[in-house]
Amino acid sequence: MRLTCPVCGDRDHREFTYKGDAVMLDRPAPDAGTDAWDSYLHLRDNPCGDTRDLWYHDPCGAWVVVERNTVTHAVTGTALASEAKR
């Protein structure tokens, strides 16, 4: 699997560290309540197919939102997390 760092270009998957579902970008308000925080921290759609997740490009320090398929490992798009909109 190769991922495209929006800054550095097409790179080997070894250069990245995985964080998890891009749901992590939608942090609830501190007072949003237990259910919202449980959902944010623990519950996952865990799709078998297209997914959006967060990877860190270690050498350059970019947080990257990767759109990929969990069945085929095909990568269909990447964007800087700082610019990604859900």
Binding site: S39, L43, R44, N46, P47, C48
Partner: peptide, 18 residues
């Protein structure tokens, strides 16, 4: 291995990543 998909049939989300 497929818990999330089957649980979704019951409207549930599980604390699981595959």
């Amino acid at each position: 291995g497929r818990s999330g998909q089957v649980a979704a049939l019951a409207g549930m989300r599980l604390p699981i990543e595959s």
